[in-house]
């Protein structure tokens, strides 16, 4: 690091050059700003999702805000970390949707994503799906983990060729 010499009379002023350090810090900030994921708050990372080869992230339509429900192995449902009663929750969501200008369109634009632990029994899953359908939320998505050995872009590129089911309701076909 160069040392700047400033002669003020006979005194020598030694100052480290902070510019490279600042450059580095700004680059780190930029990196973290780009990778920050505020939606992560809706995910319960303690759940053990099933690992499936063709699970790929869905690109929802612009402006679509999915409802993410986490279902733990003991059967408790959570939204944003708060335990919920599914019947009350869907009733509240339906009331909220009914106040929109176009309720049918609004319900369609709010897909429900179910993130369930792999040990949750089917009866509990079915209960949530039935409630969802009864309250008009027919677009439903079941979450699974993509295998960790594959990176997301490579997975998408290869699986589009081998697996015909491109599940992107909002994206281009």
């Amino acid at each position: 690091m160069p040392i700047q010499r400033h002669a003020h009379g006979s005194e020598m002023n030694l100052e480290p050059n902070l510019t490279p350090l600042l450059d580095l810090v700004f680059q780190l900030i930029t990196f973290f700003m780009l990778v920050i994921n505020f939606k992560g708050a809706s995910l319960d990372l303690s759940l053990k999702l099933p690992v499936l080869g063709s699970a790929r992230p869905i690109e929802w339509k612009k402006g679509t805000e999915p409802i993410v429900i986490n279902l733990r192995s003991d059967g408790t449902a959570q939204v944003y970390g708060e335990p919920i009663d599914p019947a009350e929750f869907f009733a509240a969501m339906a009331r909220q949707v009914s106040t929109a200008k176009n309720p049918d369109q609004e319900a369609e634009s709010r897909p429900v994503i179910l993130r369930a632990d792999e040990r949750v029994p089917f009866s509990r899953i079915n209960e949530l799906m039935t409630l969802s359908r009864e309250h008009g939320f027919e677009n439903f998505a079941l979450s699974a983990m993509a295998p960790s050995t594959q990176t997301a872009p490579r997975n998408r590129a290869t699986s589009d060729r081998t697996i015909p089911a491109a599940r992107e309701p909002g994206g281009s076909p």
């Binding site: 900030i29 990778v35 994921n37 995910l43 699970a55 992230p57 869905i58 079941l142 979450s143």
Partner: peptide, 21 residues
Amino acid sequence: LAFFILTFTPSPIEGQFALKL
């Protein structure tokens, strides 16, 4: 930088299967 480091949680690669009930 400290804020972003502390709030950073690497999100898992998750996929969904879309259904129309």
